[in-house]
Amino acid sequence: MSDVLTVAEHRQGELRPVSHELVTAGRELADANGGELHVAVISGDVDAYAEAVNRTGVDAIHTVEHGEEFNHDVYSQAVEQLYADLDPQYLVMPHTVNGLDYAPAVATSLDLPLATDVIDFSHNGSLSVTRETYGGKVEADIKVTGDRAAVTLRPTEWEQATEAGDAVVEAFDAAIDEEAIGSTVTGFEEVAGGDVDIGEAEFIVSIGRGIEEEENLDMVWDLADALGATLASSRPIVDNGWLPQNRQVGQSGKVVTPDVYVAIGISGAVQHLAGMSSADTIVAVNEDPDAPIFDVADYGIVGDLFEVVPELTAQFE
């Protein structure tokens, strides 16, 4: 009962990188207890995924062939049956959109404590996890009651396991109850391309909720024009319909890699950072000196964007 079971993630034929992060974290957790690390690979081309996830640190890989793409009922049933078979102590899943769709169901069904979006953990006889609350303003340490638990891990917090491993790969014969499958994936859609591809831009000015009103956006268009930069934004601007979806930077929008990214009135939520933290130079303009965006910014202005933006525009007009 000291083992760890993690669940690999794939989509449209590709193993997703978070799977290799789960291997690193799962290994850490298994080592803390002298246990083994098991990885479940469910649906799609399981043999190819098993090979891709077979990295140093993995002791055994269990494949469940059933359907092509992610279906939460198939995942839940497969994971629950693997759990019954392997009797692991910890179940480690990704805090991804698909993770959000099955991990809480699995934990509920198995009556396991569930800690989500975990960024760190420690193990001294019992499990403690670290999570962020209040939009990253606070870090909370949480002790998990009992000796078993399910956790979901925030992507990109752990390094990816990179070295080829030699874990045994075994087909697991899960009895999937088709009757219990209450949802059907009918297809995928990509967000429309639109007028610009911010993914290609070398110089981005990006605006966030600090702009407050749609009318104020003119000020930022003027800035982008004066600088010759491409205008992008955080999610709330797109949610409000002030800019089209193809301008959204972040986890559910675009990943951008410009030479310079100027984030104005953007707090730097993890889902936003996922889209821009690999820009070469990051500049933040924010009135809150503790905003998480300053953790990734190379340069910054702590101040009121309504004062700074017109001054900057004036310089280049």
Binding site: V97, D101, S183, T184, V185, T186
Partner: peptide, 13 residues
């Protein structure tokens, strides 16, 4: 369902 990277999954529930 809004997945990562501008991809949406169409699902009947």
């Amino acid at each position: 369902r809004e997945l990562e990277g501008g991809v949406e999954e169409l699902t009947d529930v």
